[in-house]
Structures are given as C-alpha cells and as structure tokens.
Amino acid sequence: MSVYSKPVTFAILSVAVILVGTIITVIIPMMMPSTQPVSDYIKPYTAVELEGRDIYIREGCNNCHTQTVRPIRTEVARYGEYSKPEEFAYDRPFLWGSRRTGLDLNRVGGKYPDSWHYKHMNSPQSMFPRSNMPAYAWLARKELCTDCAFRKVSVLGYGYSEDEVRAQMNEYKARVTSQDYGSAAIRNEVTPEKLQGSLTEMDALVAYLQKLGRDVKEVQKMGSVPVAEASPTAAQAGNPFEGDKAAIEAGNKLFQTNCAVCHNADGKGHIGPDLTDEEWKYGENDSDIFSSISGGRPEGMPPFGPNIGEDDIWKVIAFIRSLGK
C-alpha cells in the first residue's frame, strides 16, 4: 500500500515536509542572537511612547506607512540612514509594513517639531492639499487611557516599576501641558479646551512618532556625521543667484513645495520661524542659512540637502532674501 492510500501517514509526512523549510529559515534564525541583535544605544519605549505605538497599531497606520529605510541611495536621501536590525529589539510586534501609500516613518522622529504633527494629524490636507491621508483630528478629543500601561510594559519586559510608569506619564503630561511647551499654541488649537490639561491619544501618538529612529540619530551624532555645509568656495563666493530674477522665481516655487508648510507661503512663519524679520537663530550669513537648509537644525528643521541639492538651496536663499525687501 502506498502513502496515497494512508491518510494519517500522508498527513504526518506532509507535516515533516513543511517543517524542513520552517526550521531552517524561521526556527534556527530565532536561536541566533545575530538575527535580532540588542544594542545599548537603543532604548525601549517609554510607557507614553508605547501607548502611542498601540494607537498606531489600533488605527492600522502600518497599512500605509512602512518603517524600514532600505539601503538604497534615493531612499537614504529621502528618509535618512537605512534601518539597522538592532533598532527593532523592543518591537513586539514589528511594524515594518508592506506598502508605502504614505512615506516611510522609521526616521521621522525629531525631523519635525511636535506642532507639525499636531497640525498634520488634525488635517493633513491643510498642509498638503493633494495628500490622501485620513484626518485623525478625533485623537485629540480622546483622553489617553493609561489603566493598562504598567501591565503592558510588564508583558513586554521593559523593566519599569509601577512608579516609574506613573512618573513617565506625569512627566510627559507636564511637558505638553506647560505654557513653555514649544508646540503649545498648535496643540491648543487642535485639542478641545477641557482636555488641554490632560494627555490625549494624539499626544501619545506624537510621542511615539518622535521616538522613531531617534536613538540611531543620537548614535550618529556621537560619531562624526557633520551638519552638511556649503562648500568653502561657494561660501566665500556668496550666493551665485543673488538678485537673479529667474532664480528667485525658481526659488519661490521650491519654497512653496518644500518650505511653505512650516514657514508659510509668505515666509512669515507658523510652525517654523519667521524668515522675513531681522532675527536669524543660526546666523544671518548666506553660508549659515545654507547650512540650516542643507543639514537641518535641531528642534525640527529637516535637512533638505539630499532632497533638493546645492543649486536649488541657493535659489531658495535668493528667494528668502527677496522677501525682506
């Protein structure tokens, strides 16, 4: 009698056959620490960030956003340094995603100020009229439930005590509800008055987004990745497009696509500072402004060097200079 007339034997044989590939490509890698390395530089999520992550999961953000920057030149230019395995040691579940209807988010932490996220989550179309992202304004109208917070970090083995979890929550709440909070104005715009003194679901989600890729950026800062600067010759020669009408027009166009979202169409600022006044936080020379645009600045100015290139940065500067006049 062959196996084709013995159903139970057939079933056992089938299981054996499917287990070969399973063991070699899934089970054995699980036994190898190199599959999911753990690094001291990568910290677990705080209780607040974890709540934000759970909201990200609940709303299915992973259906449109990935969280892995691949080692491809254009991808690194668009998003930042490619993803490393150790970054995901505390990710249960992983959230790498499978489709980029929206952008990759693995390097979004620290790229924009919190106010950018509040405004964007409240109404993506107010910042990018052609975006098709759903508005998540209602997240600011829901108080964050923290009842399970300690149980959650315990299940995940993050090692915080119950007091530490409470302290993390209170600390973050104090930060975002304080009048000194840099994004207070926009947070108050999107949060109903009765919740302005509490933690909302949107607060937690912003905390989570700001954590993404943050630790890796810290590691890079400790190394020698410099802020991109104008090449010395260009810095000395000054802006090649100064006063050039066509270049200013081109700069205007670039400004509207890349900068207006935060600095407003007229350059008078909203999320980012006013560019038409006398005050320059990081220096008023052309080469300083070039560095700000090219390499970005802390507190939310993203680096545009890899995206738009040197010539276009000078055109944008020519346009900005034309605003003051």
Binding site: F88, D91, R92, C148
Partner: peptide
Amino acid sequence: AIPVNWTKSYSIFAGANDANVQWW
C-alpha cells in the same frame, strides 16, 4: 502572543524574528 487583556496582546517574537515569522 501574551495577552494584556481581552482585546490586546503582544507577539512573543520581537523585531526581525517577528517579521520573519509573520511573512513565513
């Protein structure tokens, strides 16, 4: 997965292993 409550649980696998199991 390990349950947190009736409607929430966390995968027992982390990061790259979770990804590998998921797409297997």
